[in-house]
Design a protein around this nucleic acid. Structure first.
Length: 219
DNA sequence: CCAGACGTTGTT
DNA sequence: GTCTGG
DNA sequence: CCAGACGTTGTT
DNA sequence: GTCTGG
């Protein structure tokens, strides 16, 4: 599972790394502690280039009567994403990239839960495989998204048995091509990350969603 | 047919 | 214990 | 994911 | 909107 992550980078680097055609966000400050329900940058493909937009973490299906779903949609299981009513259509036509520089998982030890920060070897930018949808009510709509999760890879195993799907840059175009749907090809991308990750225990400071500074990635 | 769910994880 | 808010 | 609330009425 | 359960 993935219920908290960070995006410690400035807008310029984000736009550069993801080859963004149009950035539909006013401004962006590095985020150390992104929580569900918050508006966060995601990358979508419009057909004429990639756009960076703000979307709410926790996918609200277009058919939802309420502005908030009555069930958790922050994550979608890789093995059922093609079949679940909430994710089936987004999987076909509304795939997105969710930029990140690291995520947090809580390791259970006895009766304690110790937060860990997981990132790429050099803390570089990467992307989770995501799905989005648009909810609208009398013109007042918004975009929201979910992060796809799968089993843990070798590095993650000691911490937690699940992890978010991390895509490689070589896969971005195929994942974002919402005009072409090949279920088997797309599902083959939703696997545990093949490379080694860096895992560090951090202070419980990160536990509080109100905290959003460098203290979140320190011990 | 209509009503009600639509999700994930962890724990018992 | 369980739900809501961030 | 964790933190924090979890309730009602009447009065200012 | 669409599927499942009754």
């Amino acid at each position: 599972m993935c219920g908290r992550y960070n995006l410690i980078i400035d807008a310029e680097a984000l736009i550069d790394f993801f080859d963004i055609e149009h950035a539909a966000i006013e401004e962006f400050s590095p985020r150390y502690n992104i929580s569900p329900s918050q508006d966060v940058p995601i990358v979508r493909n419009t057909g004429s280039g990639r756009v960076l937009v703000l979307a709410r973490w926790g996918l609200v299906p277009h058919w939802s009567k309420e502005e908030k779903p009555t069930f958790s949609t922050i994550n979608a299981r890789a093995d059922t994403v093609a079949d679940k009513p909430t994710y089936r259509d987004p999987f076909k036509r509304k795939r997105c990239l969710v930029p990140s520089t690291g995520f947090y998982e809580w390791k259970r030890e006895d009766d304690q839960k110790i937060p860990h920060h997981i990132r790429l070897p050099d803390g570089e930018l990467f992307a989770f495989a995501g799905l989005w949808d648009h909810w609208d009510k009398e013109g007042a709509g918004f975009d929201s998204y979910s992060i796809i999760v799968t089993g843990a890879n070798e590095t993650m195993q000691p911490i937690h048995d699940r992890m978010p799907v991390i895509l490689n840059p070589a896969q971005y175009n195929t994942w974002l091509n919402n005009k072409h749907f090949n279920r088997a090809q797309l599902e083959s991308m939703l696997v545990p990350y093949a490379r080694t990750l860096k895992v560090n225990p951090v202070s419980r400071y990160v536990n509080n969603p109100k905290h959003d500074d460098a203290g979140c990635v320190a011990l």
